[in-house]
Simulated assay, not measured.
Amino acid sequence: MPKGYLIAHVRISDAHAYAAYAKAAGDAMKGFSPKVIASSGLYENLEGEAHDRHVIFEFDSFEEAKRFYHSPGYQAARALRAAAATGTFVILEGTS
């Protein structure tokens, strides 16, 4: 079964409030155990909007990534992010 990937590109407007979101999102992930493939390291913005953070999470499947994103725990964290950051979030199915 192909893996599922949650890819997040985030522009932070309030670092303190974003820290609260990051903690809540981390707590919400505990039941899903995604693997962090890449996280806010060195990057070069080649096209499109620039963001402060970039993270790629690997889940067991596309459906598991969706289940996490729509889970009550993550949706509560997402509400905290609304006042702290904007971004683009995508779920992508792996090739194999």
Rank of each mutant, 00 (worst) to 15 (best):
P2W: 02
P2V: 03
K3T: 12
K3D: 05
G4Y: 09
G4W: 05
G4Q: 07
Y5F: 15
Y5V: 12
L6Y: 04
I7T: 13
A8Y: 00
A8S: 07
A8C: 11
V10W: 13
R11I: 13
I12M: 12
S13D: 07
S13P: 03
S13N: 13
A15P: 00
H16A: 13
Y18A: 09
Y18I: 07
A19F: 03
A19M: 07
A19V: 02
A20G: 07
A22I: 08
A22E: 13
A22V: 05
A22D: 09
A22W: 00
K23M: 10
A24I: 07
A25G: 02
G26P: 04
G26K: 02
G26H: 01
D27Y: 05
D27I: 11
D27K: 14
A28P: 04
M29L: 12
M29C: 03
M29F: 04
K30M: 08
K30G: 14
F32M: 06
S33G: 15
S33L: 13
S33I: 05
S33D: 14
K35F: 03
V36C: 08
I37F: 07
I37L: 10
I37E: 04
I37M: 10
I37R: 09
A38M: 11
S39E: 12
S39Q: 08
S40I: 03
S40F: 03
L42I: 01
L42N: 04
Y43M: 03
E44W: 01
N45A: 06
N45C: 05
N45E: 06
N45M: 06
L46S: 03
L46D: 01
L46M: 02
E47K: 00
G48W: 03
E49T: 12
E49M: 12
E49R: 08
A50L: 04
D52T: 12
H54M: 08
V55P: 08
V55Q: 11
I56L: 15
I56Y: 15
F57Y: 13
F57H: 09
E58V: 08
E58H: 08
F59N: 09
F59H: 06
F59W: 07
F59K: 10
D60G: 15
D60C: 12
S61R: 12
F62W: 12
E63M: 04
E64P: 00
A65I: 08
K66Q: 14
R67L: 15
R67V: 15
F68S: 15
F68M: 15
Y69F: 12
H70F: 13
H70L: 15
H70M: 14
P72G: 13
P72D: 11
G73Q: 05
G73Y: 03
Y74D: 02
Q75R: 02
Q75D: 00
A76D: 05
R78W: 05
R78V: 11
R78P: 00
A79W: 04
L80E: 01
R81I: 03
R81G: 12
R81L: 06
A82L: 13
A82S: 13
A82V: 07
A83Q: 11
A85D: 06
A85G: 02
T86A: 01
T86C: 01
T86D: 00
G87V: 00
G87I: 00
G87W: 01
G87F: 00
T88P: 02
V90Y: 06
V90F: 09
V90K: 09
V90T: 04
I91D: 03
I91Q: 00
E93K: 10
T95F: 10
T95C: 01
T95V: 10
T95S: 13
